Simulated scan of single mutants.
Amino acid sequence: MTTVASATGVGPLLRGWRERRRLSQLELALRADSSARHVSFIETGRSRPSEEMILRLAEHLEVPVRERNALLLAAGYAPRYAETPLDDPSLGSLREGIERLLGGYDPYPAIVVDGSYTVVAANRGIAMLLEGVAEHLLTPPMNAMRITLHPRGLAPRIRNLREWRGHLLAQMERQIALVRSEPLRRLYDEVAAYPLPERAGGAPEDREDPASHPYVALPLRVEHGGRVLSFVSSISTFNTPMDVTVAELAIETFLPADAATVTYLRSL
Rank of each mutant, 00 (worst) to 15 (best):
M1K: 11
T2A: 14
V4W: 11
A5C: 11
S6K: 01
A7M: 11
G9A: 04
G9N: 05
G11S: 06
P12I: 03
R15L: 07
G16D: 04
R18F: 05
S24M: 12
L26C: 05
L26F: 12
E27Y: 08
L28T: 13
A29H: 13
A29M: 12
L30N: 13
R31I: 05
D33N: 15
D33K: 14
S34R: 07
R37Y: 11
H38M: 13
S40C: 12
P49R: 04
S50D: 02
E52G: 05
R56Y: 00
L57Q: 01
L57W: 03
E59R: 15
E59S: 12
H60S: 00
E62F: 00
E62I: 00
V63P: 04
V63A: 03
V65E: 09
V65Y: 02
N69T: 07
L71P: 07
L73I: 09
G76F: 02
Y77F: 15
A82G: 08
A82W: 01
T84S: 08
D87W: 04
D88S: 14
D88I: 01
S90M: 05
S90Q: 13
S90N: 06
G92K: 05
S93Y: 02
L94P: 11
E96I: 09
R100Y: 07
G103M: 02
Y105I: 05
Y108M: 11
V112S: 07
D114I: 11
Y117V: 01
T118P: 02
A121K: 03
A122Q: 15
A122S: 13
G125E: 03
A127L: 13
M128D: 11
M128Q: 12
L130H: 12
E135M: 02
E135R: 15
H136V: 08
L138E: 09
T139C: 06
P140F: 07
M142N: 06
M142D: 06
A144W: 14
H150T: 10
R152N: 11
G153C: 07
G153W: 09
L154T: 01
L154W: 08
L154N: 06
L154E: 12
A155T: 09
P156M: 04
P156L: 01
R159A: 15
R159G: 13
N160S: 03
N160L: 00
L161S: 04
L161V: 10
E163V: 08
G166A: 10
H167N: 08
H167I: 04
A170S: 14
M172D: 04
E173M: 06
I176F: 08
I176R: 10
L178D: 08
P183A: 06
R185N: 01
R185T: 14
E190F: 12
V191H: 10
V191I: 14
P197M: 04
E198F: 05
E205C: 08
E205K: 01
E205N: 03
A211S: 12
S212P: 03
Y215K: 02
A217G: 02
L218Q: 10
P219R: 02
P219W: 00
P219F: 01
P219K: 00
R221N: 10
R221M: 11
G225Y: 09
V228R: 03
L229S: 09
S230M: 00
S230P: 03
S230T: 13
F231I: 06
F231R: 04
S234R: 08
T237K: 03
F238M: 09
F238T: 10
M242S: 12
E248S: 14
L249H: 06
A250G: 12
A250K: 14
I251N: 05
T253H: 07
P256K: 04
Y264C: 04
R266K: 14
S267I: 01
